[in-house]
Write a protein that binds this DNA or RNA. Structure first.
Lengths: 208, 208
DNA sequence: CGCATAACATACAGTTTGTATGTAAATGAG
DNA sequence: CTCATTTACATACAAACTGTATGTTATGCG
């Protein structure tokens, strides 16, 4: 039986401290904003000192990047889990869309990923993060749809980026109180519009 | 013949000072960023002191809002001028799109309006500004297209917001070095996809 | 066991922001 | 025209924050 906080390896200490810092920073960055959150407040919430922060991260921005990275991973995982390859291309895209909008409902997440992220880290860095996590499944879904259901041939990177931008804005609008159904309908219409063939049962059936 | 800088009315002084501050701030905010630009630097470039700044603006953020407002007006004016009502609904939308992408090519403008703007002022404020200037013509163009060419009936506000978001991301991508033609093609495809009827001469006509 | 290094904590210097206070110029009532 | 009031600034100040430099304690390892 060894003493509480007796002897920990350096790797464990580092991992724990980094996790504490990221957790505290995430909370504050989402509750307030990057600019309104000071490093003194973060380290107080994490139970360490600023020395620890600047030992593990180059600067405040690097800590923010770590938070954003982690958050993007979580969202991407939720989307992937919701759009299994067993679905048709179109159904997978729709399921993924719903999962994305749901995931972005988590409080403060839109500010983190869609407002502060691009402003603090720059669009280039955010694109890199998105392409590594989130956008991958969207892009694959679009490629699949193009092949399978003969979606109009279009530059895939541009299409992915623009649809992702639309999803992002939808998440923002919904959080701001707009109608989720309205935005969902438009998103689906935008995607269906790219298929030359009429989408299955988009015009609502006469019965009803 | 009266002395240079002899006697100026208060209204003139205010107007001139505000204009100087906004011009200097615009330059610095676009060359660097909101966060990296300090008020001492701004007032030095404007040739006044911080006292003048805080006399005319509540805080740094209010000055930034004035800059953003002015910039949004300029962009909206350029778009409106490029899409006269003499054009068909679809042609007007395309002309407006091109004008928007062109206008957003001005150095630093994307950072101002698309990155720092939303982060500093919040999406709600940016939406309000956009709806007052830029988005109005887009929205009207879409309504016209729905009526005239029978674009699919969709919630107009949501459609406007999502297409605007796509335009914004396109401007960002093009500035980052992506192919303008690729993004232009996808934007047009997205809009055309909303029309049940095949768009006029989308498959390029053999003649001409 | 003892030296090198990693993981912190503490102290410090430089900036920045917003405010409070002071001053000169313009405005307007009489 | 005069003078009191308000406006348009300039200057001084307090608080806060960021990054760095330096000091201390705990591991890693030969």
């Amino acid at each position: 039986m060894q003493m509480e906080s007796g002897r920990r390896s350096n790797r464990d200490r580092t991992e724990a401290t980094r996790a504490d810092l990221i957790r505290a920073a995430r909370r504050l960055f989402t509750e307030k904003s990057y600019a309104e959150t000071g490093t003194p407040e973060i380290v107080a919430a994490a139970g360490v000192t600023r020395g620890a922060l600047y030992h593990h991260f180059a600067d405040k921005q690097a800590l923010f990047a770590a938070v954003v990275e982690q958050e993007a991973e979580i969202v991407a995982a939720q989307v992937d889990r919701a759009s299994p390859s067993s679905l048709s291309a179109r159904d997978a895209l729709i399921a993924g869309s719903d999962a994305y909008l749901m995931a972005m409902g988590e409080a403060g997440r839109t500010r983190l990923l869609l407002l502060d992220g691009p402003a603090v880290l720059g669009r280039a860095t955010m694109d890199e993060i998105d392409n590594r996590h989130g956008n991958r499944s969207l892009r694959e879904g679009l490629v699949a749809a193009m092949r399978a259901q003969s979606m109009t041939r279009l530059p895939v990177d541009a299409l992915t980026a623009l649809l992702a931008a639309a999803f992002d804005r939808a998440a923002l609008a919904i959080e701001a109180g707009a109608s989720r159904e309205d935005y969902r309908a438009v998103l689906i219409a935008l995607m269906d519009g790219l298929s030359p063939a009429p989408p299955p049962s988009t015009r609502r059936a006469p019965s009803r």
